[in-house]
């Protein structure tokens, strides 16, 4: 049975992945901020066929709490087959432009906390010489867009960090997959004016993520059509890009 650590376990994409793993009988160590949501998620996964489901309430921005959480995870699971790092928020770009403290708090949650977690997780997976680090970033990290460059820059930081870490861990048999979802219908994007045709359900994205982990994909755009969209977006020269309002 797979032993799976999920950070941000109550997020919609992580939850959809967890349900697929639960049907295979996986054992979980779930981490999220809200203990009540964690308990409800754990009960759901158990009912769907999961093995033991451990829960741990933690705010990822409490960097000093990471060590205790990871040692509790080590004690509960022993070996980690998959660590899915899925926590995040979608900051209010306009508010972040007016409030530097808010901008830094959001950057801290979406980038710094992730870098802190990945640093310690990497060492743990390195010492067990195997396993997969699955990190959810975003297509938004590929270009800084005027409408959400705070979010985009945090994701870009994590993606660049992941690229280097992947090369380091590759040598010891640990795989790192950088997952870049496009628009997904989740509570995080609820109320946003997204183009309906491009919005995927979390279940679809989750299937893509599980397949990407199996295939040991390095950078996964999901759903797959985002590979093409982002290729085009990345190809737009800056002289043109700065005149666009994306």
């Amino acid at each position: 049975m797979k032993q799976i650590l999920i950070i941000g376990a109550t997020s919609a994409i992580a939850n959809a992945c967890a349900r697929l793993w639960a049907s295979q009988g996986a054992v979980f160590f779930l981490v999220a901020r809200n203990a009540e949501k964690l308990a409800q998620t754990a009960a759901d996964l158990s009912s769907r066929g999961a093995g033991t489901v451990h829960t741990y309430a933690m705010d990822v921005t409490h960097l000093e709490a990471h060590v205790a959480m990871l040692s509790a995870c080590q004690e509960a699971l022993g070996r980690i087959d998959i660590a899915l790092v899925a926590h995040g928020t979608l900051p209010d770009q306009a508010a972040c432009e007016q409030d530097a403290a808010l901008a830094l708090r959001e950057f801290n949650l979406n980038a710094t906390a992730t870098v802190g977690l990945l640093t310690q997780l990497a060492n743990q997976l390195e010492s067990q010489r195997g396993g997969t680090l699955a990190v959810i970033t975003s297509v938004a990290g590929d270009r800084g867009r005027p409408s959400n460059y705070l979010y985009g820059s945090a994701k870009a930081a994590v993606s660049a960090f992941c690229e280097g870490l992947r090369a380091r861990l590759f040598k010891v048999g640990v795989h790192l997959i950088d997952i870049r979802p496009g628009f997904v219908a989740t509570p995080m994007t609820q109320g946003l004016p997204l183009p309906a045709l491009l919005v995927a359900q979390p279940e679809v994205v989750a299937k893509g993520i599980l397949a990407g982990i199996e295939r040991q994909t390095n950078v996964l755009y999901t759903p797959a059509f985002w590979t093409v969209i982002m290729w085009v977006v990345r190809s737009i020269p800056s002289v043109v890009f700065k005149r666009m309002s994306l």
């Binding site: 409800q40 998620t41 009960a43 759901d44 158990s46 009912s47 769907r48």
Partner: peptide, 15 residues
Amino acid sequence: DRFLHADWSRGVLTA
């Protein structure tokens, strides 16, 4: 759409 409990020995499901 979560399940709260499943008792497969008695066929009792809470959702």
